[in-house]
Amino acid sequence: MSDFDFQVIIESLPFLFDGLLISFQLTLLALLAGLAWGTILAVMRIWGPAPLRWFSAIYVNIFRSIPLILVIFWFYFLVPLLIGRPVGNFTSALIAFSLFEAAYYAEIMRAGLNSVSRGQVYAGLAIGLSPRQNLQYVILPQAFRNMIPVLLTQAIILFQDTSLVYVVALSDFMTSASTVAKVEGRLAEMYLFAALVYFVICFSGSMLVKHLQKKKVA
């Protein structure tokens, strides 16, 4: 490795940075959409009438049983077919990630809502809150606080998972690094650099999660 070439990394930085922005964009949008849809699924599962409960359960279990790459392929193939015209691979990837992540967020939400003890629910009702008020002022705030670390951890996983858009050649950070690696013939430099960048971002994120968890205990 004596011929490790830093120059190629420096020269490709602007290109890689664009890729990183795509990764962040995809993470953020899929996170918001996944969270929203996941919350709806969780509420359906806990409080919905039977058909909605079943739908939610089946949805969540199917998405959790199949690989993300397969989901990406599914929507890469399916979205243009349904819409009737080609859409960019960003759109199809975003849809795939949102629907996929929602299944995981739904489970986190469900666990969070269930984590609020029955005693708390009774206590809220006992002081005369309506069920809706009880949800709003007693259950959700506690559930959400319990969930924050897990939600963040899942966000870090999502960020790592966005690298899989490589399979549909969407130029996120990973795909960009891989492109430079192949064009310049500098595989070691580019992949190790990519690993370093991902590591710094994800490690900082997980330190933040640990910090939050400690605060929660205290």
Binding site: Q160, Y166, S178, L187, A188, Y191, Y198
Partner: peptide, 20 residues
């Protein structure tokens, strides 16, 4: 190993490790 995407790790094992 937890903070680097599996795909990046896979490529490192495949393309980089044999060189090292």
């Amino acid at each position: 190993f937890r903070n680097i995407p599996l795909l990046v790790q896979l490529f490192i094992w495949y393309f980089v490790v044999p060189e090292l």
